[in-house]
């Protein structure tokens, strides 16, 4: 060990300046920057990060309705339904009769089990002027929750308005939440066809295959995730879990009697 390794000297001036610049850059970033980051995170399935960036965007501009909607959607994705319901209510106090916020509230209410209120909110959202995909998604979810068969029509309507792949993945997520894995897989496959380079499409497909008790297919799909994104923590965790399950006696017995 060198003799003066542990002595403390004043930090070099350059580092201090660099930190100051970084801080200035951080404050200089506008809401569009944070919204882009939120969207990037959302497309990768990093909902916690996305929620954080939506909040940063709102710190810059509180009138950004899309960020409020994004926050509620992320809370729903994270399974924090009472919080999502509370937050959507608060946002609606600021932006009365906003269709997307109403749809977000409908979705949150639906997840908390209040289908009657969710249906009413959804109808109100669809009654507003303008056309966006989210109210149709929310309506589709209410239909799924009520076990009514016209949900596909609602989701198709939403897809007709917004042709981007994340919508398909989110619809698959809704089906998965209500244990309709077969329908979820169909939507996931559509998403994969649209954006085969997106890891989230593959990951969600893997989850659908797992739910449908197709471990072989799921393993392949998760491996595909890791080919696209070698450090995808969720795909790794799923593979590890599958390996653990198969190493048990019950897992081996199940494997013996399964085709896939």
């Amino acid at each position: 060990m060198r003799r003066f390794d542990r002595l403390e000297f004043e930090k070099p001036r350059e580092t201090h300046v660099a930190a100051q610049t970084k801080q200035r850059q951080e404050t200089d970033r506008d809401e569009r920057h944070w919204m882009n980051l939120a969207d990037e995170n959302r497309r990768m399935g990093l909902y916690e990060g996305s929620l954080k960036y939506y909040s940063r965007a709102l710190e810059v501009d509180k009138s950004l309705v899309a960020a409020w909607v994004g926050q509620v959607q992320m809370l729903i994705m994270l399974g924090e339904y009472p919080e999502a319901e509370l937050w959507s209510r608060k946002a609606l106090e600021l932006f009365k009769n906003n269709a997307e916020l109403m749809a977000a509230r409908a979705q949150a209410l639906c997840r908390t089990g209040d289908l009657k209120e969710a249906q009413a909110m959804c109808d109100a959202a669809l009654g507003q002027q303008g056309q966006s995909a989210y109210p149709w998604v929310a309506r589709g979810e209410v239909m799924v929750a009520r076990k009514e068969e016209i949900e596909e029509y609602c989701f198709d309507k939403a897809i007709a308005i917004d042709r981007d792949w994340p919508l398909l993945v989110e619809i698959a997520g809704i089906y998965l939440h209500y244990q309709r894995a077969a329908k979820a897989l169909k939507r996931c496959r559509e998403a994969v066809e649209k954006a085969p380079e997106q890891v989230l499409c593959w990951y969600r497909q893997g989850m659908c295959e797992l739910a449908l008790d197709m471990p072989g297919a799921a393993r392949k799909t998760f491996n595909r995730c890791l080919q696209i994104h070698p450090n995808h923590a969720d795909a790794k965790a799923q593979l590890e879990l599958m390996n653990q399950n198969e190493s048990t006696v019950w897992g081996a017995v199940r494997k013996m009697f399964k085709w896939s």
């Binding site: 929620l51 709102l58 710190e59 509180k62 924090e80 009472p82």
Partner: peptide
């Protein structure tokens, strides 16, 4: 609205009120 002092960080499930929200739900 842009200038008002609004809390823009949503409540979280792990916060102190999270358990209460779940019970009331």
């Amino acid at each position: 609205l842009a200038a008002s002092d609004l809390d823009v960080n949503p409540p979280r499930a792990r916060d102190r009120g999270g358990a209460f929200r779940r019970i009331s739900l």
